[in-house]
Design a binder for these strands. Structure first.
Length: 427
DNA sequence: TCTGGGGTCCTAGGACCC
DNA sequence: TCTGGGGTCCTAGGACCC
């Protein structure tokens, strides 16, 4: 039987690389792309990694380093990253259609049927093509399982050439490499379980590969077992090329400043529902279930911490913003308590279904006609907003220019998705 | 003072039924 | 009022990913 071969293509410092494509001044200088509200570092250039600033670190904690090393901090520009991601994936599709887009900056290719003889050379070919066509540098790991391909791509980031092939390596050679990977860097082993394993002497991917997991009872889930098998070269995860429809749509934001009143929270919830409902409609989906949640922030003392949530089933599955907002505000009413400093709120749609599979519970012509009208109205609103800019048309409940809106002081232009922000070159 | 946002999957435990 | 075992369904919460 033909053994499987996976290639993981992983964009290097993706958000930073996207910014650099359009702003060469950012080359060779330390660059951070921050999270929303300019809160944490979510992407770092190699220069920043060398300085020792970790992924996800809150920027206020490294203020001195930012200053000392003249680190350029950018607010995130997701419209740009998402568009660049599509371009990278399109290049990969010219190589094979057996591709699984795993995240905004990663894709698995299933390549055993491509007739590749030299995997490392193949990897370099892919890497060069992506760079030439998009300007984005990538690292590539090639192996018999997804978990090993992930590990290989991690190794590739630090290696000259940016490609690591484990397929042509012996088990002994693989084990040597696995000894160099901390257990917490293994795909599927997160920050919660890392201390648990380390305290039991399992320090590296190699240790985990040969550990007796039966010793740890229910701490080890089926996922943990699969991870071990995959490290041993037994493939448990396939490349899923078919598009699986998503199961939830979330919209949430931290506030630019603490929020106290129900009125402000109502505006925020209304806006988030509006955003999530647009997402629903753009994918031809209806929501059957709605959850609203609030939080004062995880770093509050127990007495000041309050993080309620509540859900409600919609009368019928819908993507009609006014009905969703109505239901959302009822939820908010239930969980709001005065006296807390709210830092974040969010909404989540679940029980998603397609328009086509929608069963009309009420068959009378009135409700059918009403639904058609709602759909038409929403389509018109979406069209106008798309044409004239998001927010031209919105519900009164969303408020105007609210104070709670997040900070985004350093966002770059949306070079590829907004005509007004096209890159300009002076000669 | 200042700590992101959007997802998935798994498990334990409660409610309910026979 | 007390009693057992087995099954399903649902939800909350944990853990993980990027």
């Amino acid at each position: 039987m033909n053994q499987k071969v996976f290639a993981l293509i992983d964009c290097n410092n993706f958000f930073v690389s996207c910014e650099r494509v359009f702003n060469p001044k950012l080359e060779n200088v330390p660059v951070i792309v921050a999270s929303n509200n300019d809160g944490c570092a979510v992407a770092r250039s190699n220069e920043v990694k060398e300085i020792g600033i970790k992924m996800g670190v809150p920027l206020f904690k490294v203020k001195d380093l930012l200053h000392k090393h003249c680190i350029k901090v950018l607010s995130p520009n997701f419209a740009l990253y998402s568009d660049m991601s599509h371009r990278v994936m399109e290049v990969l599709r010219t190589i094979t259609d057996k591709i699984e887009v795993y995240s905004i900056d990663e894709a698995f290719l299933s390549i055993e049927s491509l007739g590749v003889e030299e995997y490392e050379e193949f990897g370099r070919m892919v890497k060069d093509k992506v760079f030439k066509w998009t300007g984005i540098p990538v690292s590539i790991g090639i192996a018999h399982t997804k978990t090993l391909a992930k590990a290989a791509s991690e190794l590739a980031k630090k290696k000259e050439g940016g490609v690591v092939d484990l397929v042509t390596k012996s088990v002994q050679e693989q084990d040597v490499l696995l000894q160099g990977i901390p257990v917490g860097d293994v795909w599927g082993i997160g920050y919660r379980l890392t201390p648990f394993y380390e305290s039991r002497g399992i320090m590296t991917a190699y240790d985990y590969k040969y550990a007796d997991l039966n010793l740890y009872g229910s701490k080890v889930t089926v996922g943990g077992r699969r991870t071990q098998l995959e490290l041993q070269g037994i493939s448990c995860n396939q490349v899923t090329t078919t598009h699986v429809s998503r199961k939830s749509i979330i919209s949430s934001r931290s506030f630019g400043k603490p929020v106290y009143t129900q009125e402000e929270l109502s505006e925020a919830i209304s806006e988030y529902i509006g955003r999530a409902a647009r997402k629903l409609r753009s994918q031809n989906l209806l929501a059957g279930y709605l959850t609203v949640y609030l939080t004062t922030g995880r770093f509050k003392k127990a007495r000041d911490y309050y993080a309620p949530s509540t859900s409600t089933a919609l009368v019928y599955p819908t993507s009609y913003t006014p009905d969703l907002v109505k239901a959302g505000l009822v939820c908010l009413e239930k969980i709001y308590r005065p006296g807390y400093q709210y830092k974040k709120a969010g909404v989540c749609f679940t029980s998603l279904q397609t328009m086509e599979s929608m069963q009309f519970r009420i068959f009378d012509s009135f409700s059918f006609r009403k639904r058609m009208q709602e759909e038409k109205l929403m389509a018109t609103v979406d069209k106008l907003n798309k044409k004239w800019g998001q927010g031209v048309l919105k519900l009164a409940s969303e408020g105007t220019n609210p104070l709670w809106q997040m900070k985004q002081s350093q966002r770059s232009p949306r070079y590829t998705t907004a005509w007004k922000e096209l890159l300009q070159i002076s000669v």
